[in-house]
């Protein structure tokens, strides 16, 4: 494999295989650290949902399920376009690669836009934890403690906020990748950044696949 025309072999590696293996393993380990990073929030969610199931259900029912579902579909589509981008790079179709990267960027932007709209709704409804927080249970027969609902919304904003910040960082990286692709930097032999970013993007999607049911769909029969 040492006969590549590519000049991107760093001085401390013996060959391209070693370099690529190292980068890929590094990315997987990074994703493990990300799981632990989100894990702390998931733990807090489990602890408080177990303690206050009614308040969490009632608060969850104020979310906009159709918008959440649309966003889930948008993100899954963006994972598809990202996978297509990796494939395009692997077969050396540079224009296709750029097209799919732009598609991924657009879908990521749509997700963030919908998310911002949902945040705005929550803000208007005084569902942001803090001095202006105001929560009235829709089911008047079974009122829940607004303090506990506030905990739900704190976790909602912390978890979706952390997820959205990963999306924003991802969007910035896509822009860098598009610029690199426009300069014809990627070849079928060397497109490691595209592959590694693909792993990251799929990971961020998977986090949302967990967030959507845990935050939106926990008490649908009372909706």
């Amino acid at each position: 494999m040492a006969s590549h025309a590519v000049t991107d072999l760093r001085h401390h590696f013996e060959n391209h295989d070693q370099q690529k293996d190292a980068s890929t393993l590094g990315m997987w380990i990074f994703l493990v650290t990300e799981i632990m990073f989100f894990g702390g929030l998931f733990l807090a969610y489990i602890a408080y949902r177990t303690a206050y199931p009614d308040a969490f259900g009632a608060a969850s029912n104020t979310l906009n399920i159709p918008l959440g579902a649309v966003n889930t579909a948008v993100l899954i589509c963006s994972s598809l376009t990202m996978a297509m981008a990796v494939h395009s790079a692997a077969i050396g179709k540079n224009k296709l690669l750029i097209t799919f990267l732009i598609a991924t960027l657009v879908l990521g932007g749509v997700f963030l836009g919908v998310k911002a709209y949902e945040y705005h709704d929550k803000f208007v409804e005084h569902h942001v934890p803090g001095p202006n927080f105001d929560f009235k249970s829709e089911d008047a027969k079974h009122p829940v403690d607004p303090h506990n609902a506030s905990l739900y919304f704190a976790l909602y904003f912390a978890m979706t906020g952390l997820h959205a910040s990963h999306m924003i960082i991802g969007a910035v990286i896509i822009v860098v990748l598009i610029r690199m692709a426009a300069k014809n930097r990627f070849t079928p032999e060397w497109h490691t950044p595209i592959e590694l970013f693909g792993l990251y993007w799929h990971f961020v999607d998977i986090v949302w696949i967990f967030l959507f049911p845990l935050l939106y769909l926990i008490d649908p029969k009372n909706k």
Partner: peptide, 29 residues
């Protein structure tokens, strides 16, 4: 280390914005 990172993040949010995660008055622990 990622776990202490997210813990400190929650601590900072709790102190700065008083979100209630660690505050018994709001049901936190």
């Amino acid at each position: 280390t990622p776990v202490i990172a997210v813990t400190l993040l929650l601590l900072i949010l709790e102190r700065g914005l008083h979100i209630g995660i660690f505050d018994p008055a709001l049901g936190g622990d």
